[in-house]
Amino acid sequence: MKDVYGEAIFDFYKGDHSVVLTTHNTYGEPEEMPVEVFFRDHQDFTELENLAITSCEGKILDVGAGAGAHALFMQAFEMDVTALENSPGCIETLKHSGMEKMVNQDFYAYESKYDTLLFMMNGLGIAGKLASLPFFFSHCKKLLNSGGQIILDSSDISYLYEEGVAKPNHYFGEIQYQYEYKGKKGEWFDWLYVDSKSLVQETKELDLHTEILMTDEYDQYLARVTGF
């Protein structure tokens, strides 16, 4: 598969700050993703991100670490963190940035044990579909020590359909994206945004507990999932 996303991130890391990463989607016009957001200094972290980091405990797996903004910050403060990525470009960026513990593997193929799984920047999206949440949490359980936790953020994107966009015939938080960089397009992929009420209900049905730690003014929220 083309590593369009990772190539853009590694080029930015190498100094090409003219990088333009375009995201195509199933709800509207293509959008430009500001690649610099993946390289933010901790001073630019939001309140939600800071709370997520301080909520992490024990041995931590940062899933979909990207360029490593969060993982590198935690490492600098001697937290036991491993960055998980399946993008070769991101792995190269992490290596050059000094990330000490990293794994280049697909999340669903990875097996190890941690106390905290961290999914940031709408990282729950990796589940893909609402109906796939049981499978997602089942795999999370395999990666967690007894009493472990998941720290994640997601968003309520129902506002998209209040602006004249036709409502889909499936759960409104199920989106498809495609990256484009330097004229190259990656594969379309599923991404999931879950409103907090739905997440609480879905996890309750799996005998898990979701605590909403905070919600910001953009309908993005931070949650802790326990019961493993």
Rank of each mutant, 00 (worst) to 15 (best):
E174H: 11
V165G: 01
D153W: 12
P168N: 07
G173F: 11
S155P: 00
E163R: 07
Y171L: 10
H170Q: 06
E162Q: 12
Y161E: 02
K141A: 15
L143T: 14
K142G: 15
D156R: 04
V165R: 02
D153Q: 11
E162V: 00
I150A: 12
C140A: 15
L144W: 07
Y161V: 04
F172T: 02
Y159S: 05
K142D: 15
L144D: 09
I151T: 13
E162I: 00
Q149T: 05
V165Y: 00
L143C: 15
A166F: 08
S158L: 00
N145L: 05
A166V: 14
E162Y: 10
I151A: 12
K167W: 11
L144I: 10
E162M: 09
S154W: 08
Q149A: 05
Y171A: 12
I157K: 00
L152P: 10
Y161A: 02
P168Y: 07
Y161T: 01
G164I: 04
D153E: 13
G173P: 04
H170P: 07
A166N: 08
G148I: 00
L143I: 13
L143D: 14
L144E: 06
Y161P: 02
I151G: 12
E162H: 09
C140L: 14
N145A: 08
S158E: 01
E163C: 08
F172L: 07
F172M: 06
L160S: 02
I150V: 14
S154V: 05
V165M: 02
S155A: 10
L143V: 14
N169P: 10
K167T: 01
S155N: 05
Y159D: 06
G148V: 01
E174P: 12
Y159V: 01
G147Q: 09
G147H: 10
K167A: 05
L160R: 00
C140F: 14
P168V: 06
L144M: 06
I150T: 13
P168A: 08
Y159N: 02
N145I: 00
L144N: 08
E162K: 11
K141H: 14
D156E: 03
K142P: 13
E162N: 09
I151C: 11
N145E: 08
V165C: 03
Y159T: 04
G148T: 03
H170F: 07
L160D: 00
K167R: 12
L160N: 01
E174M: 09
I150Y: 10
I157G: 00
Y161M: 04
Y161C: 04
Y159R: 02
K142T: 15
G164C: 04
I150Q: 11
L143P: 15
K167E: 04
G147I: 07
G164Y: 01
L152S: 12
I151L: 11
Y161D: 01
Y159F: 03
L160F: 03
E174V: 14
Y159H: 04
L160M: 03
E174C: 13
C140I: 08
Q149N: 05
E163K: 07
F172G: 02
L152H: 13
K141S: 15
L152K: 10
L152T: 14
G148E: 00
E163W: 06
G147Y: 08
Q149P: 05
F172A: 03
I151M: 12
A166C: 05
N169W: 13
G148R: 00
D153S: 14
S154M: 06
D156K: 03
S158H: 00
N169Q: 13
G164A: 05
I150K: 11
K142F: 15
N169S: 11
E162R: 10
H170G: 09
D156T: 05
L152M: 14
E174N: 11
G173T: 08
I157L: 01
